[in-house]
Amino acid sequence: MPEFISLNGPDNVGKTTQLRQLAGRWTGFQLLGAVHEHDPGPWERASEAGDYATWWFEKSTTVELTSMLISGHAKRATARTPGRTGLLDRGLPMLMAVAAATSVVKEGLSAREALWTVREIAAPVPAPQETSVLLIPSLHPERSYAITSVREGRAWTGIYPRYQRVLHEILLRQAEEGTYALVVDCEDRSLDEVHGCIVDGIALPLPTPPLGMEDDR
């Protein structure tokens, strides 16, 4: 088993559901959650500054945001119990995609320029080795965005729709570059089928999965 497995993908694709299902199948898995849970101080200060979206998309710099994401990622890795496989809700590739998409909508960089920039910022910080899986609603970026926005249940407003569209484009760009160990096209697949793709795709020696997973994406 790898030391870390990360599930990556846009909002509402089912990452949390799949992580819980994996954790329930083997005691050697350890849910480690999201980066802000392991380095809460900077995120709490950002929230206290007022409108969180304004801080994220206007006040924070690309260096500040990327550094916060990477710091939380590094601290999260230290929470893993030796001998267990840490399950990550958004791994390093996804964090790079988030920072890059934010940079695109905030600073007007191209996706290529933004990805290069955030990778340079993150490079000095040692990152844990992970097996990264991308769950994507569709291999077409606009279709992928449409699926997840409908699942939100309420309209995204302000800069967020633009950010989400760019994020989907960057995730698919990463997939084309071979960033992820496994890419799962979730369109027209049930949760059980997606789960099977994950387990088979990274060759996890796990017991037979439970049937009829609850769809709580």
Rank of each mutant, 00 (worst) to 15 (best):
V166G: 07
G91P: 12
A99F: 02
R217K: 07
S47F: 04
C197Y: 06
L139P: 05
V125P: 00
T208E: 11
W26S: 15
A74R: 15
A146C: 01
L211E: 10
L206M: 06
P137W: 01
A74P: 03
R90P: 01
A114E: 03
S190I: 03
T54D: 12
N12H: 14
P126Y: 04
L182A: 10
P126C: 04
L19D: 01
V98L: 15
Q164H: 11
A100F: 01
V63E: 14
T61H: 10
V199C: 08
Q18V: 05
F4N: 13
I159W: 03
G50I: 02
S110I: 00
H38P: 09
H140I: 08
E176N: 14
V194P: 08
P93C: 09
M68T: 00
A97M: 06
G212Y: 01
E107L: 09
T148F: 01
Y145I: 03
T66M: 07
A114T: 05
M96S: 12
I147G: 12
E58Q: 15
L95M: 11
V35P: 06
T17K: 08
Y180W: 13
P42T: 01
L19W: 03
H140Q: 12
R189C: 03
L95Q: 14
V166Y: 04
T61E: 07
C197G: 08
A111M: 03
V63L: 13
A34N: 09
L95H: 12
T208N: 02
G41N: 06
A53G: 10
T85S: 09
R76M: 14
G86N: 07
D200R: 14
R90Y: 00
W26Y: 09
S190M: 04
A146H: 07
D188Y: 06
T54M: 02
W116K: 13
L167V: 01
P205Y: 03
T62A: 15
L204N: 08
A155L: 07
L32G: 09
F4I: 05
K75N: 14
L95F: 05
D188S: 14
T157F: 02
Q164F: 05
I147L: 15
R217Y: 00
D216C: 12
L115R: 14
I159R: 10
A146N: 06
W156Y: 05
D11L: 10
T27S: 14
A99M: 06
L65C: 05
C197N: 09
S103H: 06
E142W: 05
W43Y: 14
D39H: 14
A100P: 11
G86Q: 06
V199R: 13
E193K: 15
V63G: 07
